[in-house]
């Protein structure tokens, strides 16, 4: 494999530093600045992004670092920022909010210190000067305090993610709408690759818990990892993670295309969702009642990967969307070349 920028030793060093910061729950943004992350990222975006998000997932961290990934793709389509920005994510897959109604969506964290919120909305026919843009996305910018007034902390499956739902933010207050062109498509693709990496990290951590538990836990006079039924579940979980890792490498290969490698990015997000379902199903089973308890860490990975799967499209939805397009005649792209 070619590693243009980051060599193995540097990557390992960076991963170690990130792990330390994330374990202590320190200020990730400050730590990244100190590591000279912007340069690392420019040097080797694929490896740097994958490394950062895998550690983020492994540590069950919550931050708005995913916003940076999507906003970087959207920046060119937006007016200059008047201050720090956050992104409002669609509640359902990559479908932008309907601008005619009150705005809804997800925020990855509170809005303290944020000036404006970027809101992708469906492009109104009236806004689409060029009919070719219809059906695409348009970007609006809302003052952070207006959005903040419409937020509620997520009290769902994953209470630790620190996410907020936004309901009924006043769309009328949004500034001028900018057609996003392919910027939103690119942003979604970049976000999906980052999320796939985050799911890899979380899955690896959950699998490590399951391996450690089953190796140590003794029943019938032997560790339960010596039972074939247990071993084969863990092997299947490993296969799921490795296939995800390979597909992520492939997805990065087309990231430079005009649409940001959207096709392959959707595929890898689908695989990530499938992989987390597979890994968590097996891990929870082989950990026995311990896997269901608050006393084991495992439940936190189950809940977190479920939330990450939902963001920018869960795997059931993506499979159905993809299959519908294929039935309608979309090209069965080979995606991977030797």
């Amino acid at each position: 494999m070619t590693t243009p920028g980051l060599d193995d030793a540097t990557a390992e060093l960076l991963a170690g530093s990130l792990r330390e910061v994330l374990a202590e729950g320190g200020d990730l943004a400050a730590a990244l600045a100190e590591l000279g992350w912007a340069e690392v990222l420019a040097d080797d975006p694929a490896r740097a992004t994958t490394l950062l998000f895998a550690e983020h997932g492994r540590a069950l961290a919550h931050s708005r670092v995913l916003d940076d990934v999507l906003l970087a793709e959207l920046a060119g389509a937006l007016p200059a920022a008047t201050g720090p920005r956050a992104l409002l994510y669609p509640l359902h897959s990559d479908q932008p909010a309907d601008p005619r109604g009150p705005l809804t969506g997800l925020l990855l964290g509170g809005l303290d210190g944020i000036t404006e919120v970027v809101v992708p909305t469906a492009l109104d026919a009236a806004d689409a000067g060029d009919p070719a843009d219809a059906g695409g996305a348009t970007l609006r910018i809302l003052p952070a305090e207006l959005v903040a007034a419409a937020t509620q902390p997520v009290r769902g499956f994953d209470t630790a993610a620190g996410w907020l739902t936004v309901s009924a933010a006043p769309a009328g207050a949004a500034g001028p709408a900018t057609p996003a062109g392919e910027a939103w498509t690119r942003a979604v693709a970049a976000g999906r690759r980052a999320l796939a990496a985050e799911i890899i990290g979380a899955c690896e951590a959950a699998l490590a818990i399951a391996v450690a538990h089953t190796s140590a836990r003794v029943q019938y006079g032997r560790s339960i990892a010596t039972f074939q039924a247990v071993r084969h579940r863990l092997a299947e979980a490993h296969v799921a993670v490795e296939s995800l890792r390979s597909e992520l490498t492939v997805a990065w290969g087309s990231a430079g295309q005009a649409d940001g490698g959207a096709w392959a990015a959707r595929l890898v997000k689908l695989r990530a969702g499938f992989a987390q379902a597979e890994v968590m199903r097996h891990a929870v089973q082989v950990c026995g009642a311990m896997g269901l308890s608050l006393e084991s860490e495992l439940h936190r990975f189950v809940a977190r990967t479920a939330a990450l799967d939902l963001l920018l499209g869960d795997y059931h939805t993506l499979a159905e969307q993809l299959g519908t397009e294929l039935l309608a005649g979309a090209e069965l792209e080979p995606v991977v070349a030797i």
């Binding site: 390979s246 490498t249 499979a319 159905e320 995606v335």
Partner: peptide, 16 residues
Amino acid sequence: AARLGAVYEQIIALRA
């Protein structure tokens, strides 16, 4: 449709 999408993706994962 979902199964068709899933099988196509599985083939791509195997190729990768």
